[in-house]
């Protein structure tokens, strides 16, 4: 800064004050602009570098349908976990031979929930949230809303789970 001042003074000994100001403003804008270019040229690659896995996991969330070839052998009153995109999901074979599937991520604070067969409910061990085993609707505890439910189709021993 000081160096700039002396430079302008010696160069512009006979210029008026207005000229001096504009010259300083010009230098400021110039250095600021070049500095921003450097910050961008360094910052952008680093951001993209660090963000690489985010982009990839975004890709995996784009899944709209998952096929589970062995799921039809699931016993009555049992549940299995599978991955829907990047998130854990749950397939339940009810005692009345109906099926439900839902995202197994608690709507409260994102713990993975479990199916409790003896009480026929979905339970979150973290803070005691309870969901309905058939619909995934919130029953009691802290969850603000129900679990995200999926469509289930059973055909020739293969279970297909898709987004609603």
């Amino acid at each position: 800064m000081n160096a700039n001042k002396t430079l302008t003074h010696t160069n512009g000994a006979d210029t008026d004050a207005g000229d001096l100001m504009s010259r300083r403003t010009f230098a400021k804008v110039l250095f600021g602009g070049v500095g921003l270019c450097y910050a961008g040229a360094i910052g952008y690659p680093i951001y993209r570098y660090l963000a690489s896995p985010i982009e990839r996991s975004m890709e995996t969330t784009k899944v709209s349908e998952v096929t589970l070839p062995d799921a039809a052998t699931l016993e009555l009153g049992a549940a299995m976990m599978f991955k829907f995109g990047s998130k854990p999901a749950m397939l339940i074979h009810h005692k009345d031979d109906t099926w439900s599937a839902m995202e197994a991520v608690c709507t409260h604070l994102a713990c993975t929930v479990q199916y409790q067969a003896e009480e026929n409910r979905i339970y979150c061990a973290c803070h005691g949230g309870v969901y309905d085993a058939k619909t995934g609707a919130a029953v009691s505890g802290p969850p603000p809303k129900g679990l995200k439910a999926f469509n289930v189709k059973v055909q020739d021993g293969t279970v297909t789970v898709s987004k609603v």
Partner: peptide, 9 residues
Amino acid sequence: YEIHFGWLI
């Protein structure tokens, strides 16, 4: 080869 700008870093 896979991470964005990984080659540059």
